[in-house]
Write a protein that binds this DNA or RNA. Structure first.
Lengths: 136, 136, 136, 136
DNA sequence: GTGGTCTAGACCACA
DNA sequence: GTGGTCTAGACCACT
């Protein structure tokens, strides 16, 4: 098990071949790490320069990613100290959240419909994804 | 009544929020409609101008989409008559469909994320929905 | 009255002497224009390059400001078309909003207290500000 | 009991969200406490280390603040004894106080803005509150 | 022409 | 050492 600890917390990797821009790949990976609970409030992200060297990209690109994360309230940055995972914004009532989710999903389904996908396609896809994650 | 199921065939809808450009959204929706048989050889696509007005976008954008569809051989344009689904319409591969679905889902998840929802919230929601539907 | 129409909608000006960075000055002025109702949903902001020339600053700086506004959901940008004032995000219930405002104000007052300011100082300040605006 | 009103004299609190750096927040709060007489000549400030622990910040930051206060002649440091409010403590001018208040309010408004509140919402709220207090 | 991304590099302020 | 701001300039994709 110990051999598996690597990249357990937050190991950012870029796919230069992807059409997703670098800064967005970083954002997505940080978001995922938060969603998965791999990192939580107070966790310190790699420094802008450090990550830039690691990924062999320009520091500005990392900074742009961190900056967007901060605007969204996912991380908070302390000048001269570093960038940290923030607290989750206070959740509205559970009922409201459920309603909101329902609305968002329905909008999305109508959108998927334009491409000929059905709810079952979505379910199947999520099932596969979850299977893949399990194998990893 | 059956003649009136127009919207069932090809109802193009754009998502301005998506990172997929308009012209590509149009292409994908036409492709997918061909793929699952909602439209077949000889079906007449909406006119460039008509669709542009409908979608409230620049006619050039529609034209670009149609043009690319023609290059790929999926549709053929009859000057002064309209644009029609071609005779030999190679359906997009399952892999392409899966990729598209994947991209759409990931974008949606990122969207959900900004409201603080996780993949698991989505899974849970779909599970509940499916349970409800079962009961009905 | 007609002589007063200038800069009525959105006239952005930078104060190079201010300690507030350029991109933030732009953000603040757009926010103000929205808050004042000088611009509303659908209003098209100056182009990135155009504004940069006007203000004699680097286009990237304008882009950074617009980008933050977009992340916050205040504007929405359409690639190749421009940047537009967005719709207001759907408001939660009035009661919740009132509670939220109350909480925020109380936090702020406690903060002001550390500097020796009182609620009355705040009231007086706002009164002056409103007087100034009226004069303009 | 009167000897226990400690927090009344000088209770320093930091706002990590503010754009005002920590060291400056400390300086301003000490200045303002002097200005409105909450602390006077001979009052002993918290120790550098003690305050750093309290505020959970780097001692260097507290030291920097105290050092600047000493340069301005507002406090004097007695090696091995502590830091004390000086004998001649020029109070910050009214203009400075107004500027500070202005900055704090503007920052707060920007904060409120991200929740969709406007200056007018704030005004309305304060008006209501004042009405309520009057009734009490 | 529009915005988006990325680089290189400079200078500043905070801890 | 940390992050923040700004410039200059290149290249790309969308309308």
């Amino acid at each position: 098990m110990a051999t598996q600890r690597d990249g357990q917390h937050l190991q950012i990797r870029l796919d230069p071949g992807s059409s997703i821009p670098f800064y967005r790949q970083i954002i997505l990976q940080v978001e995922m790490a938060i969603a998965d609970g791999r990192v939580t409030t107070g966790y310190r992200l790699p420094t802008v320069r450090g990550l830039a060297v690691d990924l062999q990209i320009n520091p500005n690109t990392v900074a742009k990613a961190y900056s967007e994360l901060e605007i969204r309230g996912l991380v908070s940055t302390q000048h001269g100290t570093g960038t940290f995972i923030g607290e989750w914004s206070p959740a509205p009532s559970e009922v409201d959240r459920e309603q909101l989710l329902s609305q968002l999903v329905h909008e999305f389904m109508s959108h998927l419909g334009s491409y000929g996908f059905t709810v079952d396609d979505l379910r199947a896809y999520l099932r596969e994804e979850s299977a893949k994650d399990g194998r990893k």
